[in-house]
Design a protein around this nucleic acid. Structure first.
Lengths: 225, 225
DNA sequence: GTCTATAGTCGGATAGAC
DNA sequence: GTCTATCCGACTATAGAC
């Protein structure tokens, strides 16, 4: 995750990092309330009291975890978002490039690999039962992703399309990607996959982006008629 | 929920019902581990010991809650599924009716209203962190819905399309509906909606079914070419 | 800075009265 | 069948030794 080598850090920073990493797992599995600091400290091979010392308590550690998740997501799709945002502020936006950015954004949001499972658990809980930490997630990356996606759709379909519609449409299309993270167990059972590895993710990616393309081309045909 | 009037039930059955209803709320808000039996008993205005007496303990109550959720879902989409399943086993399936059933199935899966929020909370947790009770949900309705949806897509696109693809495609399309339940907070913040009420749900429904139609018509054009 | 020991709280389950 | 009282374990947070 972190590009900084452990050797470069003081003991304190190492302890912080170990606690955050363990906490992502535990909070992801059990949620904020059900997770225990004992469990986190044990998995991080740190003392329980270290949590209070470094993070002020369980809640503070949770906030640090959510901040860490924002960093993980930005490391993944940040550069793409930078590029697409720069593209969107230009005068002319060739429609095919809008579509291309949109497809890459959706593809990048699938992220079903093993290490993302606890992250997904935390995000899902925050969406359905938001805590005070939700704003860290929303302001940190969700709003930006949503705004960008809706903007790309609007640039593709034309200014005549209401902004609110583009927001809902992007949310729906993103849902196709998220379905494989949020409703993971159902797709595993139905397909018989043991996990969603690289080949499965590639298959999902091609289908989801194909759907997005069909939807957008179809809408464009309708609105331009 | 239940069509049986409280007056028709013995005290025991009333107590059971009150506990299950309260437990849906509490488990939905906090999850299996974090929920407390004290809280559930209090909201149901029942004694704490009643949980052990009627359900054997916290886990047993949770199982009863998941069974109750299956009933709620079947009450909502069961008749539609019965009809579509009967349609699918017939020799000839007019393509427009396949599409129509599919759209109604997706529309019926949005279910964003207030009373479904705790239910969604429980389903989401079971999907990302399944407990032993997941099978109750899966065998009770999820598998059936998935099988039916994939079958409708295959009937619409033709037998040449691999079965596995139809499963993934239906899961993706269903994701568009589920996005508004699973990523509820993001869409609320972005749109400024205070809740997802009837008008918002109607808007979502029309957009999600339009997307599904565009995807399927587009795929059909491709495969038949 | 780090860790041990413990205080104080709250949870699930149950024994036994009614 | 129903409820009260209680046990016992597990939790967070903190005081204070090192």
């Amino acid at each position: 995750m972190s590009s900084v080598l452990a050797a470069d850090l003081g003991r304190g920073a190492q302890a912080r990092l170990a606690l955050v990493h363990a906490a992502v797992q535990v909070f992801g599995e059990s949620g904020l309330e059900a997770a225990t600091t004992r469990d986190i400290a044990q998995r991080a091979q740190q003392n329980i009291a270290a949590i209070a010392y470094y993070f002020g308590g369980k809640e503070g550690l949770y906030r640090a975890v959510v901040e860490h998740i924002v960093e993980v997501i930005l490391a993944r799709v940040g550069p793409l978002m930078d590029e697409a945002e720069a593209f969107l502020v230009r005068e002319q936006q060739p429609s095919e490039r809008c579509l291309d950015y949109l497809k890459r954004l959706l593809a990048g949001s699938i992220a079903t690999n093993q290490s993302m499972i606890p992250v997904t658990g935390i995000i899902v809980r925050e969406q359905t039962q938001p805590t005070r930490a939700f704003s860290i997630l929303y302001d940190g990356c969700l709003e930006r992703l949503q705004r960008l996606g809706a903007g790309l759709i609007r640039a593709y379909l034309g200014e005549a399309v209401p902004r609110a519609d583009c927001i809902v449409r992007f949310h729906a299309l993103l849902g196709e990607s998220l379905a494989f993270r949020f409703a993971r167990e159902t797709i595993l059972r139905r397909t018989g996959w043991k996990e969603i590895g690289a080949p499965e993710e590639a298959r999902i990616q091609s289908i989801v982006t194909e759907h997005a393309e069909l939807v957008l081309r179809g809408l464009r045909r309708k609105t331009r008629r």
